[in-house]
Design a protein around this nucleic acid. Structure first.
Lengths: 162, 162
DNA sequence: GACAAAATAGAACGATCGTGCTATAAACTG
DNA sequence: CAGTTTATAGCACGATCGTTCTATTTTGTC
């Protein structure tokens, strides 16, 4: 699988950076094509529609989040160190070089919270996954004795998230 | 001053509601004109430019905020009751009928934090005013003995805001 | 290197964007 | 009611939007 996927990935990287500053609705095919030095139709051909492109941007953001926040933390010892790692990585995430405008999920959540559709559904799922990851990490920390045994892990995850 | 100001105000009310759901950049002259049953140019004539319209929308939001959050709280007794009033009114504010999409300041802050210009300047000023109002209320509560004497009122305001 | 397949360019579409202009209609002032 | 100011409509502009078509170039395979 050759060149197609490669430029597609490059487009999504650029689109993700753009999204973090101007939001999901703020990106445009033409503007993206100019920045990529591609023709508008050439770029468009990689995605059947703009909504599809936006969806892929969100998926890219989620992949980046997993690989730069969650995966490194899983290499840390179970329990409190891992939770601390999740927190540190999370803070660093918003300042990542490929996100010049900060966390794209926060930006997207703000523009999508009143707009039903597949984009919002994707975002809701992503947030739920993240909360479950946090709750799991908290549960492990309880098992390891690093956190109080009667802790409500769901509540902990939610406060961590806030 | 007659009809001009009246329709202008009506436009801004509609625009504010629209902004709270689609954001400041999401509103359009044409869409607004359709919703107001006015011609595009007839509506446009009230504002020299779109940026001017957006600025007036922010000013309208600030006026609404003052009159529905701050002013009523000032009629409550000094000290803790007033702080409690500010907090309650603030929560109610996001659910106000003229803000179907929630607090417009939060939405605007998210789209403007990377876009310098008069719009962002206005928003920064408004936030500073609000923090100062909170700090003043806290200072009064300290005087009244409702809050610890050694309280950092600035820090209190900031945490209240978060 | 020939050939099929995939990737990109180019042009055009209808729509909408923000913004001017000019004319008409409505609202005030005397 | 007459006259003037003010508010609104209508039309057109260049630009950009997302999208669809048809070429043309580039890539990967035998």
């Amino acid at each position: 699988m050759g060149k197609g996927r490669r430029t597609r990935r490059a487009i999504l990287d650029t689109a993700l950076a753009e999204t973090s500053t101007v939001g999901l609705a703020g990106i445009s095919i033409g503007g993206l094509a100019r920045k990529m030095e591609l023709s508008k139709s050439g770029l468009f051909a990689h995605f059947g529609s703009k909504e599809d492109l936006q969806l892929e941007v969100l998926a890219t953001a989620r992949d980046r989040f997993v690989e730069s926040v969650i995966v490194p933390a899983l290499r840390l010892p179970r329990g409190e160190p891992r939770i601390r790692g999740l927190f540190d990585n999370w803070l660093q995430w918003s300042r990542a070089s490929f996100l010049p405008g900060g966390c794209p999920f926060i930006a997207a959540a703000n523009e999508l919270d009143d707009v039903p559709g597949p984009l919002r559904d994707f975002l809701v799922d992503a947030q739920r996954d993240w909360l479950e990851t946090l709750a799991t990490a908290a549960r492990i920390a309880v098992e390891e004795g690093h956190l109080a045994r009667d802790l409500d892990v769901g509540q902990f995850a939610y406060e961590f998230y806030s």
